[in-house]
Design a protein around this nucleic acid. Sequence first.
DNA 1: CTTTGTGCAAAGCCTTTGCAATTTT
DNA 2: AAAATTGCAAAGGCTTTGCACAAAG
Lengths: 129, 129
Amino acid sequence: MAEQPLRLTRQRQAVADVLATLDDFRSAQEIHELLAGQGQAVGLATVYRTLQLLADHDEVDVLRGRDGEASYRRCSATHHHHLVCRSCGATVEVEGPAVEQWTRTVADQHGYADVSHTLEIFGDCPRCR
Amino acid sequence: MAEQPLRLTRQRQAVADVLATLDDFRSAQEIHELLAGQGQAVGLATVYRTLQLLADHDEVDVLRGRDGEASYRRCSATHHHHLVCRSCGATVEVEGPAVEQWTRTVADQHGYADVSHTLEIFGDCPRCR
DNA sequence: CTTTGTGCAAAGCCTTTGCAATTTT
DNA sequence: AAAATTGCAAAGGCTTTGCACAAAG
């Protein structure tokens, strides 16, 4: 079974371009709206299909929100986490080498391989207090 | 605003009982089926409502799967995280005092108050390799 | 020209909600 | 009797899918 060829279409390019301009997670629907807003209309179904494709190729990170909605973000070179304000949503990117190391150690101890993790920190930011 | 009284009904008891016999995560629909299977029929909507109630009171952990479906499991007294097998779902509870401390420190540095966090570790468990 | 991708609308799922009937206190 | 809870079915929201048409190679 050979690799099926991927065609570079206007739509796929548009989705990739938008992702490139964003630093944080956005839902498929938000991305769809952003595209429409800048005159690069792409069908919602296509947005979903493209994001899923990118996720399969590990080119975007996927995060599941409390309500089950998926959010996507292009993988950044450096791995980091988010400190999010629970009332206004202001986000700060934080890094935690120690945490990265810890998760690998813990997983190793239990025989789990190919480790990955998700970590989000929530709090009330200065402006919202 | 006073606490509204919670009534202990057959349905709520049944859901709690099932959760008590389980060690791992189950979806609301699975719990609903388990109940039906043991003659303790409870409406699906009620199962959802009860689980949400339990989650609000921190009596069950909620986990969002890759497909957006939520899974529930009664949680143990101490705060902990989960090491989940991405293929079979086998879960190990892990504690990380250092991580807890780190999140508080990071949040403090950025002026975020009333900190909480979520952390999930994913990997391929021994049995799935 | 053949194959892959897109759009639209319909369909699928999981979950939530309105409301009358029922149960608990 | 009053108030909370249940069940059912309808409604919601996100995501996937069938299919005819358009675009890419």
